[in-house]
Design a protein around this nucleic acid. Structure first.
Lengths: 283, 283
DNA sequence: TTAGAACTGTCCAAAAATGAAACGATGTGG
DNA sequence: CCACATCGTTTCATTTTTGGACAGTTCTAA
């Protein structure tokens, strides 16, 4: 193979299934991707993609190629982790992936102070609704809300994240005989035994919380979302519902990077400080 | 990692331990290698080599890197084999690796006719004294003289390669009471029971054969080297000595490439035709 | 049917990588 | 001690690659 770097382009292309999308992934232009793919096909002597009207689709050969690039990619990722873990510098980048809502409710202030304490660290916060994979080095540190214990990663469980039932303050004062139920479409969908009829469903914690604050009805939220919110009242007759756990994770290869270390420790403290509220125990 | 291709340069560099030697391997210039290595180190953030007076030596980090590049290299090699095996074209390249002496004595004529029969195949013959590894795709087809059965490769044993004792014609006519012994420094060093004293040692079959032809003494040679040579006489009192085997090998991934197929078949026929001579059985 | 969006391929100027040569440092043999 | 060879780095002109713009196509929705 003339140029190993073409495998990087090939993989992006096979995943994105379009030249433009792959180019965006690779932070380059579609012209370049088009040329590199063509060059790779010339080099290998066979077509990797079928140029149909459906866009680019892997040929059988391309599919086999894709399988074989797995070990290449795994190797490169291991190298990236090694290099990052080897980096003993305090100055430099570190990337954190965290759920948007958890960032706003729990981590915004601690991370603000983290950046003040360590101005030479370039913290990149990526808030997502999905979860990133620490193994692929898409992020260095991940705060994950999960029900499964983590597989490949290292780190700690920093809190439980139980659910409780909440409603707006005004709603609580004039509570109807039959409650309006704001359902959180959240796996697994949990419904406590209440005298209520469903009013609406949302898959976003923010949307549910907002509806509750507006007095739309009652609904479940993770405690970290609602505890301490002046506009929300917890229904005393509903017990805490055990749900997921919050883990702070990284990869063993980069655990000794001082920036990762510092960030992990800071996150541990931040969660320890707020654990009562997150777990719905203290006020 | 910004550019996966730098791993290719890194590996060549780590093996060659000198910028110029790596550049020769990579068929580029030392200036480029120097720059690419520096770029890779910048990208990874750590030094890969120690620039001592001894030349370039891997740092501990570089050593770890080298280990991790194994899976990358294995993947790329598998891809190369896949692409080559996939190639159904009759026109194109195929590379054969064969021991220099075996080429001259056994394969020169058959390969000449092979190229005449298939002018669209670009046959690259690489004669070496060492052995190439078919697994690494340094060659597509290998004719190997070995005592171990092959591990990863596929192919056939095409002949035994026993040793016999020879001398020059003139020497045979006026044979001294105590023979002069031309030793072949060939693992394992074999010495038959003869009334002889050692005259000289060479590690090259060609040199031993030449010495024998000049009447320097008697010595062992593989039959393929000596049988049919008008200037050499086989000593009738010395039995054939079983030694190594001759195998024609390729990799399973590229076995179905038509050029490989054709070449393999041609080699099988060539060895079948000359098997008697090679094994010292017929005249 | 047409307007518009999304896509790929191609052209050309700009940017980046490369090879050749010059340079300085180091080691070697006479 | 000097002449000479070897090696890695740097410089500069050249080649190659890239990014942006334009053109042509297909698909969708009005």
């Amino acid at each position: 193979m003339k140029n190993w770097d073409d495998l990087r382009i090939f993989r992006a292309m096979a995943k994105a299934r379009s030249i433009r999308a792959a180019a965006a992934d690779l932070k380059t232009t579609h012209a370049t991707v088009s040329r590199r793919i063509r060059a790779l096909e010339d080099d290998l002597g066979s077509a990797l993609f079928e140029r149909g009207k459906e866009g680019y689709v892997l040929t059988a050969f391309g599919q086999s190629m894709m399988d074989l690039t797995q070990s290449v990619t795994a190797g490169v990722e291991a190298i990236d982790r090694l290099a990052f873990g080897q980096d003993g510098n305090l100055a430099g980048p570190v990337r954190l992936s965290v759920l948007e809502d958890l960032y706003h409710k729990v981590l915004a202030d601690p991370l603000d102070s983290f950046m003040r304490d360590h101005p030479m660290i370039e913290l990149a916060i990526e808030t997502t609704s999905n979860f990133r994979d620490v193994h692929r080095r898409e992020a260095d540190v991940i705060v994950r809300i999960t029900s499964d214990p983590p597989e490949q990663a290292v780190g700690r469980k920093v809190a439980d994240s139980p659910l409780a039932a909440y409603c707006g303050r005004d709603y609580f004062r004039n509570r109807p005989a039959v409650d309006r139920w704001i359902a959180l479409d959240y796996p697994p969908a949990i419904t406590p035994q209440l005298n209520a009829r469903s009013a609406f469903v949302a898959n976003s914690l923010t949307v549910v919380a907002d509806a509750l604050r507006r007095g739309q009805g009652i609904g479940l939220l993770p405690c970290f979302m609602a505890e301490g919110d002046p506009d929300l009242v917890r229904l005393p007759e509903v017990e805490l519902i055990s749900d997921k756990e919050i883990w702070t994770l990284t990869h063993v290869d980069i655990l000794h990077n001082p920036r990762v270390r510092l960030l992990m420790d800071h996150l541990y403290r931040a969660f320890a400080d707020q654990r009562g509220r997150i777990e719905g125990r203290a006020d």
